[in-house]
Structures are given as C-alpha cells and as structure tokens.
Design a protein around this nucleic acid. Sequence first.
DNA 1: CTTATCCCCTGCCGGC
DNA 2: TGCCGGCAGGGGATAA
Length: 276
Amino acid sequence: MPELPEVEITARRLRAALPGRRIVDLEVPDPRLLRGAAPDAPPERTVAEWRSRLTGAAFAGLGRRAKFLLLALDTGETLVGHLRMTGKLMVLPPVAARGHRFAAALDDGSRLVFVDPRRLGELWRVPTVELAALPALARLGPDALDEPSPAARLAALGARSRQPIKAWLMDQRHLGGLGNICAAEILFHAGLPPDRPAADLPWEAWQRLAAAIPEYLRWAIEAQWEGELMYLGERDAVNPFALYRRAGAPCPRCGTPIRRLVIAGRGTYVCPRCQA
DNA sequence: CTTATCCCCTGCCGGC
DNA sequence: TGCCGGCAGGGGATAA
C-alpha cells in the first residue's frame, strides 16, 4: 500500500541496480498486470508481444512521478509501473521466487520481480516520447516531494473546494504522491482537523501545510529506508507512523487518545486535541 | 466543473 | 476451532 515515500525508496533501489542491465527473458504468470494492449487481446498474445519487445532491451534510467515508477529502456520505450495497494517491484538475486506476477531475467543472473498479492498493480509499455501524454501522468499535479508547492499555490487552488482537506490532499491533480497515510500524518504534524473543507482554511494553515508536506515525506523516506520495505498488514510489519492504525493509543504529543474517523470513505486517524 | 459511489482483487484480523 | 464481515498506504469509471 505504497505512497510517495515507498515508491521513492523503490525507485532509488532500482536506480542502483538496473541501469545498464539487459533483459534476457520474461516470465509473466499473471498477464493481467500488463497494460497498453487492446483490452480484449488474448493474454498469450500480449505476453508474446511484451517478450519480443523487451528481450534484449537494456535499462537506461529510473524515475518516479507521484506514485508512478518510470523505467526507461534503450529501445525507445518506457515501462510505467503502479504498485497500487500491495505491489512491490524489486531486483532479487538469482534464487527461486514464487508468487510474483512478473519477472524479467537480467544479464547478470538477477531478476526484476513484481510481487502483488491483491493484483491491483499495473505495468504499461509506452513509447518514451508519448510519456507526457499518457492520461494517468498528464492528470498529475506537481510532485509533492520534488517540487514542494509554495503555500500560495496550495491556498489559491484550495480556495474554492468544499472537499475535506484530507481528501483534497489525496487528490492527485492538486499534488502528486500523497495517499491516505501521508495525508493523515501530515495533517497531524500541521495541527489541522482532516474534515475541515479546504476552502475554510486560513492562510496560516496553508503555510503550515506547505512546510509539513516535504518535511513529513523526507522523514517517511528516512524512516523506511533501511531493511526490507514492508506494508502495514504484512506479517511482522512495524508501524512507523505517529497515528495511523493506533486508535485508542495516546497521542505522541499530548497523550489524548487517538480517534479513528471515516472521511471520504477512508479510515482517518486524528488527535482530537492537537487537531482541534 | 465538482463530489460521491462503486468497482477492481486478495489476505488478514477480530468477533462470534 | 471455523466461519464471516469488515477492512485495506490506490485510483479509474460512472453517476448526480
């Protein structure tokens, strides 16, 4: 259930392992992962086409745009990946792996593997020159980490919205990369109630938000950088977040019991005192 | 244009 | 123990 920090960590790790590596074979146990072909194309034809386009291709560069991963190839195509709720994309040593949806064998014996128990993740194959026109990417607002938005831009954009500020922050057209946990944790650090309509926030609140967003994202990347990337709900996962999934526990700042609300259909954790 | 609802999937957890 | 509803770090399509 990755958001910007987890996707950024994934991108950095792939950037250290992939550029220069060449694909020697493709294994696709779950062809539904692959997008970009005609929707009614038979899976075996899709896999055959991907195999013929990717075999022999070398990775040229690694990027991230909001929660999308961009894996540029030297063939003029780019693989665009989205991990959705449970996806992981990683380079593994040449040992047997199971339960993956996709694996690309590389010329040094390692493998690029897409693991995704809920099978909501997606992988597109897009001509690199058409990348900017891909609707999923064209919709995105400025990246929440790479281009921290000035408070003035956020305030101007949010001024007419009746959306609760938490839902507003998660809307990828405003800022790219924030998800359910990031939005809730950022609002805690900024001391703002998540259900207040964006349009009702005073200027000073937007200033606090603009500062809290990059600060929180940098912390979240650092906090999860070491070790294997784990998502909450996985066995042995450790919860690094201040409020998230801690209903009833004391607020780390003031000790008031943390409460769980539902905003725009998503579980939201809040300190009723710090975020009054 | 906005906002809300449903849907895509599977695994885990707590309650009975 | 076993079953079952609720829930999940995303986002697109559709409806009002």
